[in-house]
Design a protein around this nucleic acid. Structure first.
Ligand SMILES: [Mn+2]
Ligand SMILES: [Mn+2]
Ligand SMILES: [Mn+2]
Ligand SMILES: [Mn+2]
Lengths: 223, 223
DNA sequence: TTAAATTTTTAGACTAATCTAAAAATTAAT
DNA sequence: ATTAATTTTTAGATTAGTCTAAAAATTTAA
């Protein structure tokens, strides 16, 4: 048996899951090195180990994909990360831009009993503070269809359901201009030159947004 | 600067704190090896490192004591451990015999902001689920005077305020015989031969307790 | 379709934490 | 006060994770 991944192995598995757009898409050594802030040589070594443990499929020079058991592990880690983020924001009054780093540590705490009790304590939330879906105990995620604000055109509208990225500076900026999850939003104008947008927010009136921001905001038709 | 202890260093510092009865008493290499489930040779190496970092005072063959900064670190870890135990029992409905192992992991999460918010969320408790005092943000502990039940004699009485040890089997047994923190207890008889006792508990009537148990229960005169 | 650029892997080395076996120091017993 | 037992330290290895530098494979461009 000798199961149980090391903290480092968990971080690799999670990074592979998050970089791979589809479960089949191969994740490159360099992409992994970038994401994990380490060197390609280090990644090469580690993917050999993970491959040996059957957590990933690996062909030399071809990148890696997660196996079924690898994906299951990834979802467990992501579930923990997002549940802890929900706890930090909803019960300890952290702001949404302050929780990611702490959750990076908490996601490695090993106790399925703890995760499931935390889930219940939080009321079995389906999304985390950034709008990302929280996998259930079986690793199932249900997320409604959504698209990037930057992909919408004039007169299109919907509800802000998430942000693509948890960079604290982005999140703080969104706070400052009063953009938060759940708001109704309508595109009033798109500037062809730089893809900047004018939008109308429920109550809060009109706002100009650069493409740098619109490409980070997820919109759904309704809840 | 380059502060921040590794998980292993934290465990050594905490063990030294908990083994040393008084802050001055030297802790031996073997005692540390026992407590940390490692080998004396390993301990010898590590105490050299901790000594170099000025967290402990060390003289070859003479054992170690914590420096002021070492003791401060130890109290920070113990504070976290006990706050998390309180969270697990009071909010996630764990039993008092189930939380120690999980707290051993949570105590290493690094974020003073998190600890202090958790403290507030819990209502700034002064004791953990086992009756152990929780140091405040400055490392101050206030614990009333208490003594072991095994040190009491006939007709002495007081309130159960803690257990010396977090062995799940002990804690489960105490649950089974309805002994819990806060109960008033009176010694009715002490058997000279084996130090077993007859005690009277508020409401719950008379109980026989072996020395093995009475030596683990802490009693105070009143809250 | 060769050559250049890029990506990936290998080789060799380092640190933290651990171990076993053996040597040295201390403590306890004759 | 010697000797014996115990404790502690040193010496030498091992494993996980990391690095730099160099070699090999793949991809891109001329
Ligand atoms: Mn996050
Ligand atoms: Mn999130
Ligand atoms: Mn504990
Ligand atoms: Mn405790």
């Amino acid at each position: 048996m000798e199961n149980s991944l090391s903290l480092t192995e968990e971080n690799y598995i999670k990074a592979i899951f998050q970089i791979g757009t589809t479960p089949e898409s191969n994740v490159s050594t360099n992409a992994l090195a970038d994401s994990l802030q380490t060197k390609p040589a280090t990644v090469s070594d580690m993917i050999k180990k993970l491959s040996h443990k059957k957590l990933i499929f690996y062909e030399k020079y071809k990148g890696v994909t997660l196996s079924a058991s690898g994906a299951k592990e990834a979802l467990k880690i992501i579930r923990k990360h997002r549940l802890w983020e929900a706890f930090l924001v909803n019960h300890l009054n952290f702001k949404w831009d302050q929780v990611h780093e702490i959750a990076e540590q908490l996601e490695h705490i090993k106790s399925s009993e703890l995760v499931n009790r935390l889930d219940d304590f939080l009321g079995n939330p389906t999304i985390d503070p950034h709008g990302d879906p929280i996998p259930d105990a079986n690793g199932q995620v249900q997320l409604g269809p959504s698209k990037l604000l930057s992909e919408m055109t004039s007169y299109e509208n919907g509800i802000i359901v998430g942000v693509k990225n948890e960079d604290p500076l982005l999140l703080q900026h969104l706070d400052k201009i009063n953009i938060r999850l759940g708001l109704h939003i309508e595109v009033t104008e798109v500037n062809d030159f730089d893809q900047s947008m004018q939008v109308k927010l429920a109550d809060l009136g009109t706002l100009f947004l650069s493409e740098k921001i619109t490409s980070q905001i997820l919109i759904a038709k309704n809840l």
